[in-house]
């Protein structure tokens, strides 16, 4: 399990999530699959240009298809009307999955220099903090409804 986790999250020995120390270890490994090395990387390499790139058109079509399926699942959850308290958490999980799919693969953060991931992730953290702070602030201020 730990090994699989390493394969999924690591970037040729340099952890994808590790903050790079120098410019030299920000280099993008050219022969690594989108989700790691070994057998999983080999399987993914089928979807790339014979290992010379991280992802090719087939892979992008696959990601696009998965994102479309997730959208369909969201609407299905909406139409189901029987999920009760699970409805919002399920929708949020599906939205986060789509968000990560676009950011990691379409915006290339999974393949790009890790510093960009850190940069965007830190912006997201601050953005979410602003979001939560505003919610608390305005909810507790008993803002009057104007119309």
């Amino acid at each position: 399990m730990a090994n699989l986790w390493q394969k999924l999250t690591h970037h040729k020995g340099n952890g994808w999530w590790n903050l790079p120390h120098t410019a030299s270890n920000e280099l993008n490994p050219p022969h690594e699959g989108p989700v790691g090395g070994a057998w999983l990387g080999n399987w993914w390499r089928f979807w790339t240009h014979g290992g010379v790139s991280h992802a090719g058109p087939k892979f992008y079509w696959l990601v696009g298809f998965i994102l479309a399926v997730i959208t369909a699942l969201e609407v299905w959850a909406f139409a189901l009307e029987g999920l009760g308290a699970w409805y919002i958490p399920i929708l949020l999980i599906l939205a986060v999955a789509k968000f990560i799919g676009v950011v990691a693969y379409f915006m290339h953060l999974r393949f790009d220099k890790p510093m960009f991931t850190w940069f965007f992730a830190s912006s997201m953290v601050v953005g979410v903090l602003i979001f939560v702070a505003l919610m608390f602030l305005m909810e507790n201020a008993h803002t009057p409804v104007l119309f």
Binding site: F119, F120, S123, M138
Partner: peptide, 20 residues
């Protein structure tokens, strides 16, 4: 990326306002 980071906060504020 810096611009997109600032845009996250921009949209975050409007989404929070909608939810409030």
């Amino acid at each position: 990326w810096a611009f997109l980071g600032s845009d996250v906060m921009f949209f975050g504020a409007f989404i929070a306002t909608y939810l409030v």
